[in-house]
Measured scan of single mutants.
Amino acid sequence: MQRVNMIMAESPGLITICLLGYLLSAECTVFLDHENANKILNRPKRYNSGKLEEFVQGNLERECMEEKCSFEEAREVFENTERTTEFWKQYVDGDQCESNPCLNGGSCKDDINSYECWCPFGFEGKNCELDVTCNIKNGRCEQFCKNSADNKVVCSCTEGYRLAENQKSCEPAVPFPCGRVSVSQTSKLTRAETVFPDVDYVNSTEAETILDNITQSTQSFNDFTRVVGGEDAKPGQFPWQVVLNGKVDAFCGGSIVNEKWIVTAAHCVETGVKITVVAGEHNIEETEHTEQKRNVIRIIPHHNYNAAINKYNHDIALLELDEPLVLNSYVTPICIADKEYTNIFLKFGSGYVSGWGRVFHKGRSALVLQYLRVPLVDRATCLRSTKFTIYNNMFCAGFHEGGRDSCQGDSGGPHVTEVEGTSFLTGIISWGEECAMKGKYGIYTKVSRYVNWIKEKTKLT
């Protein structure tokens, strides 16, 4: 034993070699072989497995989906700052455009905790909710729209109204504003409101030439003092309507412009014939205590009207009353817009006519005020429907199939267009061939041609 100890002390290297040989010859039971080890760690190889990531292109799944990435790591994937920024906006807080917040056709661009709407022409605001041009839906104005110097929408209202708090709607500024039905039992019968379409306001006024200088022999019209197929109006439903009495009662109609003036057809009036105007009328054979009678003290036909040349060209006249009318729910003026808007309103496509005229061709006159909704007829169809001249200051309205029309005794009465609950004068009943005849239409004086003249002559002093 002493000898062994001496050998170990003198030859430590020998001992180490012996131990190493023993270990190498022993069977290893701690580690699995290569094949079995792979069965336990069965993990798919990654895209760049075996390579240094710093030297390969980034992978979106590896960089940002398996674990949260930084902007720089995302930049490695896209290799483009702009594309990385677009991805980053949604990656950080989701897609803010998912709810489609942009209105009126706006395009949404996502941002971090926010979004941006790219608005089409005519709109602005956070969600493109603000109209900035009158060309689109009248700028959301209830009545009139004008573009300011910086191309912003400025709404306005006709006389007797003021802008509401929203700067879009119009509200009454006087007790009985024009064009409004205020009798409670008839307010439910107000005709369907007309909503502004998209309009090209630059070209809204037709490029028409008034044929002022045409000389033409007097034409022989049949029954051209021209509501057939209409309905009984309720008291106060058309408070701007008046009836004219002269040699015979209810020979023509008219509309209240203001307390002192009536507008009617020029062919209705004769110099030297006494005319009485009755406002607030409903049943011409009954006294309903809503009527107001006034005498006409002055007749002003349009300066281009000449019955000797043509009885229905420039067929418009103004009547001055001896005493002002007292405005109330049964006696209310009709609204008159400017030339541009009167023309736009007419193009809405349908209007209402009213009167006490004959209820059928050569038949009896109506006792109760009649009204009828009539569609506008395109000019080409209008011209083809008659052998008589249709001037540019006239328009056609009615039904091709016949059966409904204005008729004798309705002449001078109103053709009105309702705009968001307020009625505007767009025409004056003038003439036609018979009444409600198939293929024939009622012919009306186009008020847009005469609004400046009306307003100039009827100013209240």
Rank of each mutant, 00 (worst) to 15 (best):
E67T: 11
E165A: 05
P177K: 00
R298K: 09
Y341W: 14
C145Y: 01
C102A: 01
T461L: 13
G179D: 01
G427W: 00
Y312N: 08
M437H: 08
S148Y: 05
R449E: 15
P324M: 04
S350Q: 14
I297M: 07
N59V: 03
K188F: 14
E420Q: 06
C117H: 02
K339M: 14
K446A: 13
G402V: 07
G253P: 04
I429W: 14
N113I: 12
C407Y: 07
W431I: 05
I210V: 10
R384F: 06
L60R: 08
S114H: 14
F345R: 01
I299W: 05
I336S: 01
G122F: 05
E61C: 04
C97T: 03
V331Y: 00
T445G: 02
A149C: 05
E73M: 03
Y441Q: 03
G254W: 00
V248I: 09
K311Q: 03
K387P: 04
R3Q: 05
A192R: 04
D198Q: 08
G363T: 13
F176P: 00
L244P: 00
A26P: 00
D110M: 15
W240E: 00
S114P: 10
I136K: 12
V416K: 00
L325Q: 00
R294V: 02
T218K: 05
L372N: 10
S25T: 08
L244N: 01
R358E: 14
F144W: 01
H282F: 04
K459C: 14
F238R: 05
G357M: 12
A266L: 02
Y201A: 13
R191F: 07
N166C: 02
S255G: 06
T381C: 12
H34T: 13
F121W: 07
E159R: 04
A149Q: 09
G272D: 12
V4E: 05
A279Y: 00
A149R: 07
T133K: 14
F176T: 06
Y341D: 13
S99H: 13
K188P: 14
P44S: 11
P175K: 09
Y305I: 02
I390C: 10
W356R: 15
C268M: 00
C97A: 02
T426R: 00
G442M: 15
L130Q: 09
R140C: 12
E420G: 12
T287G: 12
M394G: 03
G272R: 10
L425A: 00
H267R: 05
T158E: 04
G427I: 00
I336L: 11
A317Y: 00
S220A: 10
Q219F: 07
G432S: 13
W88K: 08
I15E: 01
N113C: 07
R226N: 12
V242N: 00
I299G: 04
F221Q: 04
L20A: 03
G413Y: 15
G13H: 12
E193V: 10
I136R: 10
W453V: 01
R404G: 14
G236E: 03
T225Q: 12
K260H: 05
G403K: 12
N42V: 11
I443Q: 07
H361F: 07
K339H: 09
N203K: 11
T133Y: 10
T426F: 00
Q408V: 05
G254K: 00
G421L: 03
P197L: 13
Q216C: 11
V181T: 13
F78S: 15
Y450V: 01
T225C: 13
E98M: 08
E116G: 14
E340W: 14
F424W: 08
C382V: 03
F395C: 02
V377P: 02
L319Q: 01
C407F: 14
E159C: 03
T215W: 06
W240V: 00
F87E: 15
V326I: 13
L327N: 00
N48V: 04
N452C: 06
K89R: 08
K440Y: 14
D198N: 08
I390M: 06
F238V: 05
W431F: 10
V331L: 02
R373D: 05
V227D: 13
A265W: 01
D315N: 11
V416E: 03
N127C: 09
T264W: 01
R384S: 08
Q143W: 00
L189W: 08
I15S: 02
E10K: 11
R373P: 14
R364Q: 09
S217V: 09
N304I: 03
L60F: 13
F87G: 15
R75T: 15
D322L: 01
E286Y: 05
C170Q: 01
S448M: 02
C178L: 01
I112H: 15
G403S: 14
C102I: 01
E165F: 08
Y444E: 01
T215D: 03
F221A: 09
E281A: 10
E53W: 04
G229P: 08
T426M: 00
